[in-house]
Design a protein around this nucleic acid. Structure first.
Lengths: 141, 141
DNA sequence: TCTAAACTTGACCATTTTAGTCAGGTATGT
DNA sequence: ACATACCTGACTAAAATGGTCAAGTTTAGA
């Protein structure tokens, strides 16, 4: 199981944004340069972040993006949800309470994968942008 | 981030195996039928499980596979490692202690991804086949 | 001894996902 | 008016996924 770069980039970009948006909006071009992420790709990502009210955009010259919430209120789970980075451990539909893979019974390890999904999502729910900013100030290894 | 079916199948197959290998070796054909997994695919998976000493094989008629260890000593992490299901959250090389993506400095969210990786791996290290067997007897929902 | 069941190995492949690129827009501060 | 920046959708090469297929070897049991 691996994290896609869409999710990774989204978080990187938002941390970058959070550090620089104190006064002026931050342009994607700047983020692109600082973080080494393709500008075109960033635009796709920010389009989704905007749809999910995580950032606001200011168009025109001197424009850019600004956080739309307090960094403390932006959890990893919100970011990942916005860019469709989701945790999937089971193939079977969630809705069909019993029966996986067209069988009459629940697959033998169903509970395990549910547990795993919860385990991972808990991590994402407890981690906010604020946490990452602090963490980064310490530049701890 | 999602679990691949190679990893999922490996665990399903081993739980199945653990339940039936008390007396005789279990054939992949049986597992295939019970779990609804392609026989050819199972063969690939068991070849790896065998290389990693998780199962033993008995060839010939009436042959099949048997666990090579106590279910309590087979952790999820062992199974996933055997079938190359690994948790990857960073693109950057582990070895290069400083510097991600060819940059001089660590990427801004590096610590986060490391934490996440540890968080997930901890789950895998603490879960054994034995746990899954018990869990399944209870048939809890 | 013959045969069928079962493991063994390696090549092959269609589909899907990923990680972008490209080409055009539109809005707005100076 | 023009440069800067956001906005949108189509497109695509490469990798990963989730298998299939073919051709073995081994061994129990009739």
């Amino acid at each position: 199981m691996k994290l896609t770069s869409k999710g990774r980039y989204a978080v990187m970009a938002l941390v970058d944004l959070a550090r620089f948006d104190n006064i002026n909006p931050v342009s994607l071009r700047d983020i692109s340069l600082r973080q080494g992420i393709s500008l075109d790709y960033l635009e796709q990502i920010f389009s989704k972040l905007k749809k999910n009210q995580i950032v606001k955009s200011i168009r025109g010259k001197q424009g850019g993006y600004v956080l739309n919430k307090n960094p403390n209120d932006i959890k990893l789970t919100n970011i990942f949800h916005a860019v469709d980075e989701k945790v999937k451990t089971v193939q079977c539909k969630k809705e069909s309470k019993k029966g996986c893979n067209g069988k009459a019974t629940k697959c033998i390890t169903h509970n395990l994968w549910d547990e795993l999904e919860i385990h991972i999502n808990t991590f994402f729910e407890n981690k906010s942008l604020k946490d990452l900013l602090n963490n980064n100030k310490e530049t701890r290894v």
